[in-house]
């Protein structure tokens, strides 16, 4: 009986030690805020007719909660995205195109993301331009940026 108790205690102790060694990835942080991030694409002199970008949260503290369109009529509708991205995936692929109008040139806000962020203010994102094209579906050189905007 005594040995059984001792083994049970040892088991509990070793479990506690393992848990203490494992970093807790579910740290509860009550500091939650909502931030809007504007997605800009700078197509230079070319007219932007289609784009696809991928945004990943590297900090693991941002959750995408909403997607809006951009500022120009060509991209004012919300872009295509996978609804699963709003389930805390920390990653989203956005895509949009226009066939009706001449695409915008220069730097244009093409979308806005609403995010729920936990913890410290600094959040690190990886933003990749998958493709950008003009109205003839030709690839164009473009830069994509993600800038914290107003909620």
């Amino acid at each position: 009986m005594r040995t059984l108790i001792a083994i049970t205690l040892a088991l509990a102790l070793s479990t506690a030690l393992v848990r203490a060694q494992t970093p807790d990835t579910k740290t509860v942080d009550t500091d939650v805020r909502f931030v809007a991030y504007d997605v800009f694409i700078d197509a230079g002199a070319d007219a932007l007719a289609a784009y696809q970008i991928e945004i990943s949260d590297l900090s693991g503290r941002a959750k995408i909660v909403g997607v809006e369109g951009g500022e120009t009529t060509a991209f004012d509708a919300p872009p295509y995205y996978d609804p699963k991205a709003l389930n805390g995936e920390g990653r989203i692929i956005l895509g949009a195109f226009t066939t009706e109008e001449d695409g915008p040139t220069g730097r244009t806000r093409v979308a806005r993301l609403h995010m729920q962020i936990e913890g410290e203010p600094a959040v690190d994102f990886d933003v990749q331009l998958v493709v950008a094209a003009d109205s003839n579906a030709r690839d164009i050189d473009a830069n994509v940026t993600l800038i914290e905007g107003k909620q």
């Binding site: 007719a49 289609a50 696809q52 895509g95 066939t99 998958v130 579906a137």
Partner: peptide
């Protein structure tokens, strides 16, 4: 649609242009 071996927004763009 454009037969380049991958599916991206340009495939939708290409199909949309042909439909229009």
């Amino acid at each position: 649609i454009d037969g380049n071996g991958r599916i991206d927004i340009l495939d939708a763009f290409a199909l949309a242009r042909r439909v229009d």
